[in-house]
Design a protein around this nucleic acid. Sequence first.
DNA 1: AAAAGGACCTGGTGGC
DNA 2: TGCCACCAGGTCCTTT
Length: 271
Amino acid sequence: MPELPEVETIKNGIANHLKGQIIKSVLVRKKQLRWQIPDKLTTILPKQSIIDIKRRGKYLLFECDKGHILIHLGMSGNLRVMPSDTELKKHDHVDIIFTNGLCLRYNDPRRFGCILWTEAPILEHKLLVNQGPEPLEENFNGKYLYARAKKRRVVIKNFIMDSHVVVGVGNIYANEALFAARIHPERAAGKITLAEYKRLATIIKKTLKTAIKMGGTTLRDFTDSAGNPGYFKQALQVYGKDGEICGQCGTIIHVKKIGQRATYYCPICQR
DNA sequence: AAAAGGACCTGGTGGC
DNA sequence: TGCCACCAGGTCCTTT
């Protein structure tokens, strides 16, 4: 479900409801996510307030009085703010309940996400310390990509999906960005020219910004924190469009597994 | 050090 | 209708 635009959309949807709220209790119905939810979460959070909510890559960072809650939504996770007595749905695994009667409810059918607690400086957390630059920041650009790609034989699509290279580019936006940049997804990262990387970096920024503006991409049942769908799906050029016609040249869009993931591309436009 | 593949998990779909 | 194989927004970890 969530790539960077979806996580950003969720963050924007919940932040204003939660900032300054005081946690009353934490209800964990299923602690086995990607990693087990630490027992400490339920004991240490009550009486703390949510100071701020930030995003790093696809991780959400909830700054509390004594540390941070670290949440990743995996493939199928979602977070909604709702009255704490709202009827449960399947896979509602965790409620963080506030003194004002609202709760933050975590739902995740596949349980690839995680909810962790840390009292150390948040950006030094093991999961965050080696993350690449934020794609919307200035330190992510064509020169950076070109330098990082030197001598790398990994295919370009996997390269830009590697969060240690740049965070937040998942399968949908990797496909879309490579199409827009007219770069074939299977080229070796080390063989892409500086000019192409400049084009690609610019397009990744543009693609993600547009998707955030449109509230993310709705596939299957993605909704934002208010339950609304995202509208970026209508703007997709290649993702999920195998067998359809390329809007640029009329060729049939191909699909192929690259690195275990479905890859959609136009064999004529992308070289 | 880098590349490749497996692992984690549920639900939906399409074929037979 | 049932069963089975396969697919899905991610990414860490192990093996080569």
